[in-house]
Amino acid sequence: MENKTLYTITIFSENAVGVLNQITTIFTRRQVNIETLSVSPSAIPGIHKFTITALSETEESIKKLVNQIDKQVDILKAFYNTNDELVHQELALYKLSTEKVLEHGSIEYLVRKYNIRVLEISKDCIVFLKAGHYVETQALFEELAEKIGVLQFVRSGRIAITKSPVERLSDMLAKRSEAEERIKESYNKTNE
């Protein structure tokens, strides 16, 4: 594990049926495990964004994998980054027993230390939310588990944006619509 680097793969696709399957089969064939996965509509209507993290010993193997994904007909663009090129975040939810929390006494120091948001308090349970990097959400989980006990815990896949000024997709779409006009024009000319 130590010599592996975590890569974040960003994929923009048409909102077509079965795109996820097309992507995951490429991971399967190349024996790369998906660590986290997050999918949602992007800022551009009709285009979905996938953020996938995967560990790899070499950049080369991630590059080849991304090339194969990028080649799929329904994929608009696929690229990869390392952590230093990204702002990234994960969300985690923690459910604790209200009784156990009250037994524990004050939780102010935990809330301050981890910047916890409290989403729900009922007589049975309390739900915390924490946003952060994996190590941060994991540290909170470990401390809660040790001191109070955690009834349920869930963490989202990573979401990320690049630190470069524009989302690369917008450039690409602009180029593609220029290409579309060019292609249609020449098609009409040859078919007149």
């Binding site: 048409e14 007909v73 329904d74 994929i75 779409l173 593609r176 619509s177 292609i183 249609k184």
Partner: peptide
């Protein structure tokens, strides 16, 4: 079809 934006 002569063009698809996601396919070059």
């Amino acid at each position: 079809t002569i063009f698809l934006r996601s396919y070059e």
